[in-house]
Design a protein around this nucleic acid. Structure first.
Length: 771
DNA sequence: AAATAGCGCTTTTTT
DNA sequence: AGCGCTATTT
């Protein structure tokens, strides 16, 4: 066994070595956080800990998968596969498959996604004759989700006078009632939404001491990644699981906490030391990812936040070139500028597409960027947004699968009962729904029972169509453990008629949809061909068949995100994604687009300090993704829901210490002969003023001294540049000085660059290095 | 029951 | 602008 500690720096090593007791590792961006976690698990296994006794919670399934591979490699033993590793949601879903019967759930429970939840809420609001403006599905779901995240069950919600009074005062007195009905309907459908996976796990551990003890013993060591983004219920579960031996190691960066909107509580990391007084705290402050320019720029913005753990992030990497700020007239132009820049960089430096990422605040921004990339034939891939598993046609097919696995899955049933059209229309469904509601049964129970069905007084032809449908689904369900996931999935999509309907649609979109379903079938084939990851229990006590079932596939697929999907076709593509989706990733070249007030920071964040601080952390996450070169861009006007709106550059651009910024290619304003001779890149006066003002302000937030000095030494000696000198410029490369004139801060040089030709540069800004 | 036309809502971020 | 949902028509 090789000494794995040779790969670590001192800070990392001591964090890895501390195996026992509570440990908190505060890790700055790019400081090797994942590495510490990976090596720590490897070290545990090397020290003789049983992999089954290690629980590691990551932020994405992909991160878990990659970490596992590396651990297996490090310890040289495939048993490492048996570490319990995954997201909170997927690990707890696994536990609930086994233990959920204690709470009255079938091991085949469905996981409702947001869309399912919203449809269900819409239905309830309609049923209750409530105003769907007052009780907008999105808002109601948000409220239910917040409640669950904070351990407030429907029952508790409705017995809490404060909450009820507040809802009443807010003009939404029925929220508690809707929550109640929502919970009942989910339960009746044997379905859990995302928050239920956490809340039910908590309830399980709270109400069943023997179960708690079982998992406390099982998980001898607990490791948690991205701890800054845990919420109340996750916190409470961890607290319970770790209560016995307190071998809990959390890793995170308070400066990268960006999920408060979904209940994440930054106090969990800020207060970890209070929860575990014996905690050993380690800080990882050396950044291995980015240039000095990027690291220092990131430091210069994050100091504006009040809530944080003190850290001093530094790097030994090279200075790197300045951060380019691109100013565009419109969002279309912004896309073009970014696409052009990528194109040029690719040409000049032989860079592959995969080394570029474009990050933005909202998914809607991707369109103009996509168009620009397409025009230049630059291949790209969008992460998130309407991700693969969110496409309508894919969800339709998945709904069939869901219904076969769990006949009571109400949302899936409503989706497919008349898809493709088989003569079971709205009015029929309405009658069935009313009857189901009246008798507190699932729709499936009504339609699969001939007596119930007869009681509905439907036409005989309708009844036969319904029974045909029921027979079909039953025949699918009967094969769940007879065929593997791929065979059964293919059979279902063919026999249900859904594939045929898509195949017959010859429109451009229709073909794309058909291909998407094909891709889903391919994914099934992959899944069926891969061995089981870990030894799993079936949940109902019976042994699992020796092939992988559709059932298993469905358990996995509900919690997959776009980031988890591997792209086999062409991997060399530019990545487009929201900043949230970029968390944990890194790219040599990063473009952060749409840096405008009301967009980034988002308009809804401007009311409270804490929300604005979260936006700032989000910006911090965005810029710390970059390894070599960072671009920031904004547009002066942008199309937003149909009509164009004018925008101002984001305050976040101002907050970056001006010495790290550069403004290439920006045009002089009209009537601006006052500065006919421009500085380095001809930036508008307003920007110079802002930059100087900003620089003065920033003196208080001094950076590490050695950095500042190093920076100045390289460019402050403007008097030393003379005609005839060979010089180096960050952006333009090598050049020869033709002429120098002027004095003091107005001193400027005419330089001929090999790459870009003759330029006039203001020495104050140019940072020329004499060679 | 199915097909079509018009209305209205969206956009903050995601497991 | 584009999509999904609803009301209306056939």
């Amino acid at each position: 066994m090789r000494d794995i500690f040779l790969d670590l720096n001192d800070e990392q090593r001591v964090s890895v070595e501390a195996l026992d007791g509570p440990v908190m590792v505060v890790a700055g961006a790019g400081s090797g956080k994942t590495r510490v976690l990976t090596y720590k698990v490897a070290h545990l296994l090397n020290s003789g800990v049983d992999p089954f006794r290690v629980l590691a919670l990551t932020f994405t399934n992909k991160a878990a998968r990659e970490m596992k591979e590396r651990i297996i490699h490090l310890v040289g033993n495939a048993d490492a596969r048996n570490v319990w590793m995954g997201t909170f949601h997927s690990v707890f879903a696994r536990i609930l498959r086994v233990e959920g019967h204690l709470l009255g759930y079938s091991p085949n429970f469905t996981i409702y996604d947001n869309e399912d939840s919203k449809r269900l809420i819409k239905g309830i609001v309609r049923e209750q004759n409530l105003d769907d403006k007052v009780y907008a599905a999105g808002y109601v779901l948000y409220r239910i989700s917040s409640a669950k995240t904070n351990l407030i069950t429907a029952q508790r919600y409705n017995s809490d006078d404060d909450i009820l009074l507040q809802d009443k005062l807010a003009g939404k007195p029925q929220l508690g009632n809707i929550y109640n009905l929502y919970h009942q309907k989910c339960f009746r459908a044997s379905a859990m939404d995302f928050d239920d996976l956490l809340l039910n796990t908590y309830i399980l551990l709270r109400d069943f001491p023997d179960v708690l003890l079982k998992y406390q013993r099982k998980f001898e060591y607990i490791l948690v990644d991205e701890y800054q983004d845990t919420n109340q219920v996750q916190y409470s579960i961890l607290k319970k699981l770790a209560a016995n031996n307190e071998n809990i190691c959390v890793v995170g960066d308070d400066a990268q906490s960006i999920y408060a909107f979904r209940g994440a509580n930054i106090k969990n990391i800020l207060n970890f030391q209070k929860d575990y007084p014996d905690v050993k705290v380690f800080k990882l402050e050396q950044n291995y990812r980015s240039t000095k320019t990027i690291v220092n720029a990131a430091n210069s913005i994050i100091v504006n936040n009040k809530d944080q753990i003190f850290k001093k992030i530094w790097t030994q990497n090279e200075d790197g070139s300045a951060i380019d700020v691109l100013a565009a007239k419109t969002d279309t132009e912004e896309g073009q500028m970014i696409a052009n820049s990528i194109f040029e960089t690719k040409m000049n430096f032989q860079v592959r597409n995969i080394e570029f990422a474009i990050l933005y605040r909202t998914n809607a921004q991707s369109r103009s960027l996509e168009e620009a990339l397409r025009k230049l034939n630059i291949p790209y891939r969008i992460y998130g947004g309407t991700s693969f598993y969110n496409r309508k046609e894919v969800k339709d097919v998945l709904a069939y699968f869901r219904l076969c696995v769990n006949n009571k899955d109400e949302e899936a049933l409503q989706r497919v009962i008349n898809l493709p059209a088989r003569g079971i229309g709205k009015t029929t469904l309405e009658k069935i729904t009313v009857e189901a509601e009246a008798s507190k049964k699932a729709i499936w129970e009504i339609i699969s029972n001939s007596e119930d069905l007869a009681g509905l007084r439907l036409g005989s032809s309708v009844i036969s169509r319904i029974t045909d449908f029921v027979t079909m689904i039953k025949s699918f369900s009967a094969q769940l453990f007879k065929k593997n996931a791929y065979e059964l999935g293919k059979h279902i999509s063919a026999s249900s008629g859904i594939l045929k309907a898509l195949y017959e649609d010859n429109s451009y979109e229709g073909i794309a949809r058909y291909e998407n379903v094909e891709e889903l079938i391919n994914a099934l084939s992959d899944f069926a061909g891969r061995p089981r990851d870990t030894v799993m229990e079936s949940g109902n006590g019976s042994p699992l068949p020796d092939f992988r079932t559709l059932n298993e596939f469905m358990q996995e697929v509900a919690l997959l995100t776009d980031a988890d999907k591997e792209d086999k076709s062409n991997n060399d593509r530019v990545s487009l994604m929201t900043v949230h989706a970029a968390k944990g990733l890194e790219f040599p070249y990063v473009y952060v687009a749409g840096l405008e007030e009301n967009l980034f920071p988002s308009i809804q964040s401007l009311n409270s300090r804490s929300d604005l601080e979260e936006e700032r952390r989000l910006f911090y996450v965005a810029i710390t993704r970059a390894q070599k070169k960072l671009h920031l861009s904004y547009a002066e006007s942008r199309f937003r829901w149909g009509n164009h709106t004018f925008c101002e550059p984001s305050r976040f651009i101002d907050e970056v210490d001006a010495r790290y910024l550069s403004f290439p290619g920006s045009r002089k304003r009209k009537g601006g002969p006052a500065h006919a001779v421009d500085n380095e890149q001809g930036l508008p006066e307003a920007f110079i003023e802002k930059a100087i003002r900003n620089k003065n302000l920033k003196k208080i937030n001094a950076l590490p001294e050695n950095e500042t000095k190093g920076k100045e030494a390289s460019y402050s000696d403007e008097t030393e540049v003379r005609a005839g000198d060979e010089v180096m410029h960050d952006r333009f490369g090598k050049g020869k000085v033709l002429n120098v004139e002027g004095a003091g801060s107005n001193r400027k040089a005419t330089v001929f660059f090999q790459a870009v030709g003759k330029k006039q540069l203001l020495l104050k800004f140019a940072r020329l290095k004499v060679l």
